[in-house]
């Protein structure tokens, strides 16, 4: 049940992009067509869901005072987390290049840039500060990734539709994406404040 709650919470209630505004650069840059947005979204889900438990293990068994080294090594947290994320992204990049060269080309620089996507490092750091356990951190990775994925394909579909609109020239492109992100954030505020744990207690 806890797994499910964390998933719902991170996907809808506290959406990475639309509540915390994390991972904005690729969110704005790769949301021009649904197809590429879909690919990048899947890549983010995968990277988040894989790095989160690995980082959890590192944080728990290597860095803490109870870890195998027995000393407080938490100052290494950032560097190790980034290293894990970078290697995962490298893996994803190789897979995509092999499986779908066209997607690889359309994602361009933004695929390796997932490494420094703040949603991913942010996810790992949230995991530490919220003291999730292993299963919760998997749920958080999947949920956060799914929320990010949903947000980027929704924005991409809107931007595809807007291609036929008479948007004022000054707002075309990024300007419109910013306004849309703000309005989408407002729409996602509808679910903010729901506390799923209240209802799981009753059951």
């Amino acid at each position: 049940m806890e797994f499910f709650n964390v998933f719902i919470k991170s996907a809808f209630i506290e959406n990475m992009v639309l509540a915390y505004f994390l991972g904005m650069c690729s969110f704005l840059a790769v949301s021009k067509t649904v197809k590429t947005a879909f690919g990048l979204g899947l890549a983010v889900i995968f990277v988040l869901a894989v790095t989160m438990p690995i980082n959890w293990v590192i944080n728990e068994y290597l860095l803490g005072e109870t870890g195998i080294f027995g000393t407080d090594l938490t100052f290494l947290r950032f560097i190790l987390f980034i290293a894990v994320i970078a290697s995962m992204v490298q893996l994803v990049e190789m897979v995509i290049e092999k499986v779908s060269p066209s997607l690889y080309n359309s994602l361009g620089i933004f695929l390796p840039l997932i490494t420094v996507n703040c949603a991913i490092l942010g996810g790992s750091l949230f995991m530490v500060s919220r003291e999730y356990n292993l299963s919760e951190s998997v749920a958080f990775g999947l949920g956060g990734g799914f929320g990010w994925f949903l947000a980027i394909i929704a924005l991409a579909a809107i931007r595809e539709k807007l291609r036929y609109s008479n948007v004022p020239p000054a707002l075309r492109g990024l300007g419109m994406a910013f306004i849309l992100t703000g309005l989408m954030g407002m729409a996602f505020m509808s679910l903010m404040g729901i506390d799923p744990t209240v209802y799981s207690v009753g059951n």
Binding site: A157, L183, F188, L191
Partner: peptide, 24 residues
């Protein structure tokens, strides 16, 4: 959601976000 008394306004805005995606 304890924050809002009524849901339809926000639900419609919420689904407005996804309407183009559904169509797609």
């Amino acid at each position: 959601n304890p924050a809002y008394p009524e849901g339809w306004m926000l639900a419609i805005l919420f689904m407005n976000v996804f309407a183009p995606l559904i169509d797609h």
